[in-house]
Amino acid sequence: MSELKPHISSYGSHLFVLACLITLTGITVAITSVQLGAFNTTAAMMIASTKAAIVLIYFMHLKFDDKIFRFMVTLVLAIYAIVIVITFFDYLYR
């Protein structure tokens, strides 16, 4: 792991990220009033995941930290996703 000088994010970049997040929240609320069938849930979850990714990458500094952190986060989320899929092998086919 490299111990370089920490990256300093500017105030402006934080405000920009915040604006993106609030916009996405607005979109996800707006989209519920539109009839899209099953796609509504998918869209809501995709927007939520995008927001989560933005928080992880910018606010939680994954973009600027050592890559070991990115690797671990990806791994944990992947394992969790696999667990959900395997659990649903039961419920989808019961």
Partner: peptide, 21 residues
């Protein structure tokens, strides 16, 4: 980091409870 985690969880709680279509 802990505070962002709290935010992260809410990001999923909000659509799952308030925005079911």
């Amino acid at each position: 980091l802990y505070w962002h985690l709290v935010d992260l969880i809410w990001i999923f709680l909000f659509p799952l409870f308030y925005l079911i279509h």
